[in-house]
Design a binder for these strands. Structure first.
Lengths: 133, 133
DNA sequence: CTGACTGCAAACGTTTTGCACGGTA
DNA sequence: TACCGTGCAAAACGTTTGCAGTCAG
């Protein structure tokens, strides 16, 4: 069991049952859409409002506890902020897997040939995953 | 002057002044948001409707004449479909530059270590461009 | 001439906001 | 206790749809 309370406090967010549950779902699912998160939250808080989900996700985005992942041809999903990584997105089952790919060489090339200082990279590879092929 | 008429016909789209203008703006700007496209179009067609923009962009997406580019922390932009490429996105001036980066090695690694068959890649590098630094 | 495109208005789904109440620190 | 978070309802926003008139082929 992860200590979500401290994680929230470290990001200057008050600890509430709803927030703990949101962080818990993000941790368990890895990547989740607003809609799917709401469906899961309703099971724990039968009168929770979508507005609460939005307000909290937005606060978590601002405090960098959470990051948005833009998915080609699909809705965005959200994940707990972790070390820079890429995504394998299955177009069949919609599952998203994290993967570590070293992009330093590419960043260096871009710095020298384009004089462009990279601060954030977003790489997603869409295709068919092991299970679906 | 590019022959936009043929480009439209090749994608089974009827040729209208509005469509010619949309393709022209996409060509000139490289990447453009719906909102910005509408602002430009209004200058040429004072009674054009946003619905016309949406309908045409959607048709152009379906016929693969146009592609959507999802931008981290910003609205999507649209571009004429061209050979696979990546994007340098300046967080200062919001300019987007196309760049060719060979991702075959990465795709091969993913195929072998994750058994994941990549069909589409999306790589964007956000940072500070030459002009803004 | 026929079907497709345009522009307008209405509808729709998603996200945000305002407010009264309740809970955290 | 004081402020912040929650839930509800309403509003705002972006996008889509239906329709009547017009245009491309």
């Amino acid at each position: 069991m992860i200590n979500y309370t401290d994680i929230l406090r470290e990001h200057n967010l008050k600890v509430t049952p709803q927030r703990l549950a949101i962080v818990n779902e993000l941790y368990l699912k890895g990547h989740i859409s607003i809609e799917a998160l709401y469906e899961l939250m309703i099971k724990k808080f039968d009168s929770i409002s979508l507005a609460t989900i939005y307000k909290n996700i937005n606060l978590m985005l601002e405090s960098a506890l959470v990051q948005e992942v833009k998915v080609p041809n699909a809705k965005s999903v959200y994940e707990l902020t972790k070390a820079s990584h890429s995504h394998l997105i299955c177009t069949e089952c919609s599952n998203i897997e994290d993967i570590t790919i070293d992009l330093k060489t590419i960043q260096n090339n871009v710095l020298h040939t384009n004089e462009f200082k990279v601060s954030f990279t977003s790489l997603s590879l869409s295709g068919i995953c092991k299970k679906c092929s």
